[in-house]
Design a protein around this nucleic acid. Structure first.
Lengths: 112, 112
DNA sequence: CCAATTGTTCAATTGATTTTGAACTAAGGA
DNA sequence: TCCTTAGTTCAAAATCAATTGAACAATTGG
């Protein structure tokens, strides 16, 4: 049971953006930021997801994109934001995303 | 021949991120930034795309997400970045994306 | 040891995006 | 007017991502 995390030099900008582009995952990141970057156990995000399975899926996406780090402690897994690393790679990006996601947000849905 | 553009209050953060999360579109935005935000005619981006049709598709996505503005002049369409508006909505976001996309970029592909 | 708690994995399904090619529109120049 | 240039639209095909449910693993409390 090893949780693969990308190395800083394996974190790709388009992938980070695409992964943050999912409303569920963006909400998870915003909540993590509200909790000061974590660590936060998976269960904490249950209300943002339809099921445990689905939550697991989204947390894996965040981890694989290099946005979060997950460590197992007992039967729980604690997730933290990889803030410093991301800010070194993409200065200002995560901060602006978190700030914008934190606000009431006018539109949640795109216009077609 | 009307080109629909979302109003500032219809621009949604998750959608903006998802649309920027595509490598082709990110390259288009980076090129627009290199050209000082435009205006730039569609044809200028042809080398970033597999076909005219496909370029049209990606430019439409950018426009519909509120990232660019397109105006028709004669038989051409000129695209510009909606910088000020986006910066008002999501301060610092576009700048950090452009700065990060501009650099040589270590990883282009995600780690699985 | 047993049961409950936490969370993952797998495979199937559904659903959404991307890509492609053919047909089309609109403007401009010869 | 006819041809070329610039770009769009549509529908089909291919691809990729998200959701679901059943089964599983590991840890902890009783």
């Amino acid at each position: 049971m090893f949780l693969p995390h990308p190395h800083a030099d394996q974190i790709a900008l388009p992938n980070v953006l695409a992964v943050l582009g999912d409303p569920t995952r963006l909400a998870i990141v915003a909540e993590l930021a509200r909790k000061n970057g974590g660590p936060v156990p998976c269960g904490h995000f249950m209300d943002l997801c339809s099921s445990k399975t689905n939550l697991s899926y989204h947390l894996a996406k965040l981890r694989e994109a290099g946005i979060t780090r997950t460590e197992a402690v007992g039967t729980s897994r604690f997730t933290t934001l990889r803030r410093e690393e991301l800010d070194r790679l993409f200065p200002g990006l995560l901060d602006s995303v978190i700030a914008a996601a934190g606000k009431p947000a006018l539109a949640t849905e795109p216009v077609r």
